[in-house]
Design a protein around this nucleic acid. Structure first.
Length: 304
DNA sequence: CATTTCACCTGGTGGC
DNA sequence: TGCCACCAGGTGAAAT
């Protein structure tokens, strides 16, 4: 389900709520599908670790974790704002800095229908809940995924490399690098946008929306799109993704953020899932074709 | 090698 | 109400 804006929204929400919290208990259901790292190892490794930070990489949510058993008491009750002369004494000790470092990562990919929710333990457990992490604060982190396309992975940073999505981030890529991604590629521009090893985080909604915004037909061959058009596309992607993040993502059917709230960007979709409806710019009916196995929506007049 | 197709899953919707 | 076809935010293995 979720593409870059939805994953970013979820990662921010989870980070805000459970950064500094500690995982005290881990429960997984019996389905083997989501485990890229064996379930038993994940149970063993996650329990006892503190969540140092949560962020997004491509369509992945990355939990940075402390060394096992380390606590991070950042928010002591009754803590006060230090006066200038106290700051020196309050700078983090070597021990505390060590506690803030990431020693391991838990990587969550939500697939098509995955959700990450921060709840109370009492809140009713949704059907297809595959993981429940009990936290020291009393909250609970849940992974729910009806279609089971989501994946869970654990990495020990002392034994291997940190996770990094392979493609470039569409929000920060420059003009030259962007153009270089498509050079010599004969596949459809839409298929290229969906290829995660080129750009990380663009999915079906934002591929269609950014191609509309840039005025480019999805069936154009990537290597035939002009340099000027490519830069329009890069800027369109940046605008569409930024706007979607601001609106909390697109809730087409069931996407919700870490608090269970829907996003609003679906209200601004120009083409995605608007087959037969009038183009917002020129009133021509929006067309749907199948391309790279995915429903593809475009305006035949606005997009060349 | 680059590119396309298909399988993996469950659920919702609309036609008959 | 039931049955069926088709659709859905993704991705990686197999086929071309």
């Amino acid at each position: 389900m979720p593409e870059l804006p939805e994953v970013e929204t979820i990662a921010r929400g989870v980070d805000k709520r459970i950064r500094g919290d500690r995982i005290v208990q881990v429960w997984f259901d019996r389905h083997p599908q989501p485990f890229k790292t064996p379930r038993s190892r994940q149970v063993r490794e996650l329990a006892g670790r503190t969540i140092v930070a949560v962020h997004r990489s491509g369509k992945h949510i990355v939990f940075e974790l402390s060394s096992s058993g380390t606590t991070l008491d950042a928010h002591k009750p009754g803590a006060h704002t230090p006066a200038a002369h106290e700051r020196e004494a309050l700078r983090p000790s070597a021990h505390e800095r060590e506690a803030l470092r990431s020693f391991a990562q838990w990587i969550v990919h939500l697939g098509m229908t995955g959700r990450l929710l921060v709840t109370t333990p009492e809140s009713p457990v949704a059907l297809h809940t595959h993981a429940r992490l009990t936290l020291a604060s009393g909250r609970e982190l849940r992974f729910v995924d009806p279609r089971r396309f989501g994946r869970l992975e654990f990495r020990d940073l002392r034994r291997g490399a940190a996770f990094g999505a392979p493609g470039d981030e569409p929000l920060t890529i420059g003009e030259r690098e962007f153009a270089a991604l498509f050079r010599g590629r004969r596949l459809y521009i839409k298929a290229a946008l969906l290829n995660q090893t080129l750009l990380a985080g663009v999915g079906n909604i934002y591929a269609d929306e950014s191609l509309f915004q840039a005025g480019i037909r999805p069936r154009r061959r990537a290597n035939r799109v002009t340099r000027a058009e490519l830069d329009r596309l890069r800027l369109a992607l940046r605008e569409v993704l930024t706007r979607a993040i601001r609106l909390g993502g697109s809730s087409v059917s069931d996407y919700v953020d870490a608090d269970g709230e829907r996003g609003f960007f679906q209200l601004e979709h120009c083409v995605y899932l608007r087959t037969g409806e009038p183009c917002r710019r020129c009133q021509t009916p929006i067309r749907r074709v199948v391309l790279a196995g995915r429903g593809t929506h475009y305006c035949p007049k606005c997009q060349r």
